[in-house]
Structures are given as structure tokens and as C-alpha cells.
Design a binder for these strands. Structure first.
Lengths: 356, 356
DNA sequence: TTGAAAGCGCTAACAC
DNA sequence: GTGTTAGCGCTTTCAA
């Protein structure tokens, strides 16, 4: 009925109740020296009776670290980051390390304050996707605190980094559309992950240039990140004159919002409008018209990032930069499966269960 | 190129460099006593030069708490929990508190080990949705460590709890379908959140019983949580003889998997099959045929849970139990908007942007 | 407004 | 195997 009781018992209390010395209890807790069965039992009973919970935060005093790592990204609820986080958790769980979610919402101010808290908590490390300029100022504190750091994105040699070839991804997407005969394509961008989006756009331009001016790439950006903002993109695309025959969206979230809107308007996909997304989030293959997309290995990125981070703790660690490569996943939003090359109406597109 | 440098400077170093006493630096850091401008400047310079980062974990020694709270749920990447977490973060951020994500995957073993780590970290508190029997054993440690606790779900008086009237939600869903004239309905369940699912099922049965035996409710459960498991539900439903005219799914995730599968097979929704979901996740209103669903205020649950938890820290705190009420959101998956009462083909269902 | 000193819960080095 | 003890980084008296 009332507030939680403060504090609790200490290792000293355990020692007293068990009738052993303080050091012995410490040895028991850290499983670092052999303990006689009798003593062990007495300590365990004392712990039980006292409901003693060791204070692990204090290990940070002796050079230890909090059993936690930070995950600092611009939009943690986004399916993309959720999947990366899943990979991270699956690696660190076995090490008894826990994930601290830090959603910067793209604000530099939030990023700094999260990084500060993490450093002060003496976390084991952090996995960060920087939203801003190539400035490492915010991370100095983390470094100074002794934490490990893995950056998601391009970074310099003296930091572990995992990046993805966004530019090549953009190329693959456009090459695919051009192969299918599309020459009038629209690129969909928007706020959030600006740097990645620009790279994807550049890649798209690169792929298109050999075919210019026969092929063209127009661009539309969403005004915001809400449902309305994204669905409105469909209006904007359909209003273009001449109307393009294909869409390349900088993310699956964007692509799916527009795809659904198109289907609601009876626009046949891919018949009247082909759609390519980016990231290959789970929802992409579940869409009514499964989405062709550039696959970013989100789960694997999480796994790798976590492994690198754990490796930073080891003595001989050498910083590494990984570059992951894109992979085009062709689904029905660009190519009707039932009658390849001859796109039928949306709902006839497939009777097959989507699975890659 | 090499491993991170160990440790860093301490408050003692700062005192030495600034030429002041240790206690003064402490006062400065905690902003607890006035400091003369001159001293302040010297301390700040020393901190800057030394790249000093205070060790906040040590405050737990003097009865303080780690600036973190745990969020312990069965499937943290699930859109439902992601949204609850968003609410939690939005409240605690301003208090400088950070969210620790603990994904139990429905395993009791994981739940216990997460709870243990949280207790040992001396987190400020935890928000937990228990997956198991009404046993509070795993939480004792948290309590004993001095952490606050808010349970998502029904719980006893001496704990803060936020629950949702799942049973009434199930009733609302079925009442809606019966009003629309459906008498042959199938309930879709599956693994994950068993307790909630059963309550929803019971509610459904309650709503149906006055109309029995003219109306009937059959039940099908998904075998697992994968895409395939869920999509297979569509096969199972379509194979039922006689074929039901409406589906009530225990969650939107389930409902959407089946809905998309139905659309791919050219089954008209709601024409040939009406579909009702549960939770009102964001994707529900974005579906090609927007999903009628029972709305659970996920974000609000997060907000409330976080507020209760912060309140536990205050002296006069009294534990509270909140019961949130369901709310039926009718969309096109049960009722064609274009021609109410006369359902047209799927894609004709609406030209309106979905927004509630 | 500042300093000195005790002590928080625990680890680690060493003596027994 | 176990006990003793010095100290980790910091907060918190209490004096000055």
C-alpha cells in the first residue's frame, strides 16, 4: 500500500548472519575462489533470509562496467531499428548484458543527453547511428568514460563501424526498374536518415545516367513522418504529368504507405505502377502485393555490431570497419509472379505464400 | 586502432587540478550548495581538461538509483509493446531516466534473469507484463533491491498495476459482428499473451451466448508466431465447413496476416469475410482494407505506467490499480464505407485516406 | 563558501 | 578455505 522500502541488506549483513567474513561472501558471489560446501550453504541461506541483492553498479568502482549497452538511434520504434535491436539483444543476452534504448527523435539535444547518461552509468558500450554531421564530439564523453563504441554508418579508422552500401543499393533498384523497361521513375524521400537517403538517391542517379535523357528520375519528398504525410505522397505521384510508371522509395515504410494507398485507389501494382522499397523490413513481404526491395541485413547488423562491441572489451582489440552489401529482392510489386512479364490485376498477382 | 582506454579521471583528480577540495567538487556536481563563481570556473576547466565523467552508478551506494527503468515483456519487438515503450520513454526522458529493454520471449528463465540483472543494477524501477502464473516470486528481488514496480495486467493491491478489460473488448467485437448479421464467426488465437487471449475469447463467448445456438463461434489457434504459421490460419479458416462469414482475431498482428492472405486469394473483405482485430496497432489503419479493431490505448498505457512508477519514488505514494476500457474502432474490414450495408469488391472499398 | 574526514558496499591482495 | 584490511569514487556530515 505504501512506497517501496529503501535500500536493503549488504554483503556485510550476509557475512554477519552467515557467520563468515566479508571477503568470503565476496568470493562466493564472484565465484572466484573455492568455497567449502558448508560455508556455501550458510551463505546461501543468509542471502535468502535477508533477500540480499548484490549491488552490481558498484563494480564500476573497481574498473568494472554496468551490464548494459546503449542503442542510440533516431527512431527506435521504426521497424528497421527494432530488427537491428533484436540482433543486438540476441548476442548480448548470453553475456548477461542488457539493452538501453535511446530514441533521439533526430534531435541533437536528445542524442547528447542520452550519451551523457550512458557514460555516467558506465555502460559497457554503445551502438550509435549518428544523425548528424561527422562530428564525434558527443561521443568523446563515452570514450572518456571507458565505454566501447560501435557506429552504424561510415566512420573513421579509430572507431568500430558497420556501414551499408546505400549507394549501390540505390543503383540496384534503378537497374532493376530499367531492365523491366521503366524509363519514367520517381524517387521518394523524406525526413529521417537524411544521409542514407541521399546516398540512395545518388546511387539511383548513377544507375540512370547511362540511359539519360531517355530515362528520367523525378523526386518527391514527404513533408513529415506521419501517416498522412506519407499517404499524401501517393497523391503527389499520381498528380505528376506525365505520370511515372515506377516508384523507388528510400525506405519500405515509405513504399508501403504509398503502395497501400495506390491499391485503395484501384491502381494496379505493378501493372500501372511498379514499386521498389528499401530495407526489406518484415512487413515488405507481408504486403498484399509483396514488395520488391533492397535488402539491408538488419538482424545481422545487430549481431555484428554487438559482437564488435563485446570484442572491444578484449585486450588485443583492433577497431574494424565493416561494409555490408545490398541485395535486391524481387517480389510482386515489380513483377507479376503468375504471368511473368505480363502483369495481371493486383489481386490475381499471386496465390503463393510470400517467403524468401 | 587499439582497445578503449581503461577508466578515466576521478573527482579527486578534478579537485587536485582545480586546486579545491574533493567535497567542493561534489557540491558542484550535485548543485546542492552555492559555489563561488571563481571556484566554479576552475572546476569546470578541470573537468574539461581531464575529460572527467562522473560515475553515476556509485550513487547507488548512498541509497540512490541507476537512472534506468526496465521494461520486461514477452516480445519487445511486437508493435504493441513498441508503442507502449514509446509512451514510457516520453515520460521518463525528462527525468533523465533511460529505458532498458528486456525481451523475455515468453521464457520464464529469461524473465528471471532479466529481473535479476535489473535488481542488481539498482534500477529506479521496472514495468513488467508477466507472462506466467500469478506468482510474484521473480519480482521479489526487484522489490528487495528497492526498485519500483508497475505491472501491466491484473495484480493485487500492494502493487501498482495497469490492466485492460480484455473480456469486454472481446464482447464488443462480437456484438459488432452480430449486429452486422454475422452468425458464423471464427475466433483466432495463438501463442503469446495467453492470458489476454483467453479473456478476449471468454468475452466473445459471453457476447455470443444470448444468440446461441443460432450463432456459433469456432476457434482456431496459430501454431507459432512466424509469418508462415499465421498465414496458414487463412487456409484453416477457409477450409472450415461451413465457411464462416467473419473472423475475430485476438490481435491485429494475427488479423493482418490473415487479412492480407485473404486479399491475395481474391476473397473480398468484408464482402465474403469480415475481419475484426484487437489492439489497434498503427498498421491496422494502414492496411489496404483498414481493419476494424478493439482499441487498446498502448501509448497511454506507457504514459500511465511510467507516471505511476515515478510516483512510487515519492514519499506518500499509494499503490494504484488502473483498469483501462476498450473501445471499438469500426473500419472497412467489417463495413464498406463507399456503400454502407452493401459491400463492394475489396479495392473499391474506399477512396478515403484512413484516419481516426 | 570551503575543507577534512568518515563511511557507503564492495573487491582484491595478502596473511593465516 | 577463510579472515583481515586497504582502498575504489563518491556523498555527507561537521568544522572552519
Amino acid at each position: 500500500m505504501s512506497a517501496v522500502s529503501p535500500s536493503g541488506s549488504t554483503i556485510r549483513d550476509v557475512a554477519r548472519v552467515a557467520g563468515v567474513s566479508l571477503g568470503t561472501v565476496s568470493n562466493y558471489l564472484n565465484d572466484v575462489k573455492p568455497i567449502s560446501p558448508k560455508t556455501r550453504v550458510r551463505i546461501e541461506q543468509a542471502i535468502e533470509n535477508l533477500e540480499f541483492v548484490p549491488n552490481r553498479a558498484l563494480r564500476t568502482m573497481h574498473g568494472g562496467r554496468s551490464p548494459a549497452i546503449g542503442f542510440v538511434v533516431s527512431d527506435s520504434p521504426d521497424p528497421f531499428f527494432v530488427e537491428v535491436a533484436r540482433g543486438v539483444e540476441d548476442v548480448i543476452r548470453s553475456a548477461g548484458i542488457v539493452l538501453v534504448s535511446c530514441n533521439t527523435k533526430g534531435k541533437q539535444e536528445y542524442e547528447s543527453s542520452y550519451v551523457k547518461v550512458l557514460a555516467e552509468m558506465r555502460v559497457t558500450g554503445a551502438i550509435v547511428m549518428p544523425s548528424f554531421e561527422h562530428s564525434d564530439v558527443p561521443f568523446r564523453g563515452l570514450r572518456a568514460s571507458g565505454a566501447g563504441l560501435v557506429v552504424l554508418g561510415e566512420w573513421d579508422d579509430d572507431t568500430c563501424a558497420i556501414s551499408f552500401d546505400d549507394r549501390l543499393g540505390g543503383q540496384l533498384a534503378i537497374e532493376h526498374l530499367i531492365e523491366l523497361g521503366h524509363t519514367d521513375i520517381v524517387f521518394l524521400g523524406g525526413p529521417g536518415g537524411e544521409h542514407q537517403i541521399e546516398q540512395r538517391y545518388l546511387g539511383a542517379l548513377t544507375a540512370l545516367s547511362p540511359f539519360s535523357p531517355d530515362a528520367s528520375l523525378r523526386r518527391v519528398d514527404a513533408a513529415g513522418v506521419t501517416v498522412q504525410d506519407r499517404a499524401f505522397l501517393a497523391d503527389q505521384v499520381l498528380a505528376l504529368d506525365p505520370r511515372p510508371t515506377a516508384i523507388f522509395a528510400a525506405s519500405d515504410t515509405l513504399a508501403l504507405a504509398v503502395l497501400n494507398e495506390l491499391l485503395r485507389r484501384d491502381i494496379r501494382v505493378p501493372g500501372e505502377m511498379a514499386v521498389v522499397g528499401f530495407n526489406n523490413i518484415a512487413a515488405a513481404q507481408l504486403a498484399v502485393v509483396p514488395l520488391t526491395t533492397v535488402s539491408v541485413p538488419q538482424y545481422e547488423m545487430g549481431i555484428r555490431a554487438a559482437q564488435l562491441l563485446l570484442d572491444e572489451l578484449r585486450p588485443g582489440h583492433v577497431h574494424q570497419q565493416l561494409l555490408l552489401k545490398p541485395n535486391l529482392i524481387v517480389r510482386e510489386s515489380t513483377r507479376s509472379v503468375a504471368t511473368p512479364g505480363l502483369e495481371g490485376p493486383t489481386n490475381k498477382a499471386s496465390r503463393r505464400r510470400p517467403q524468401d
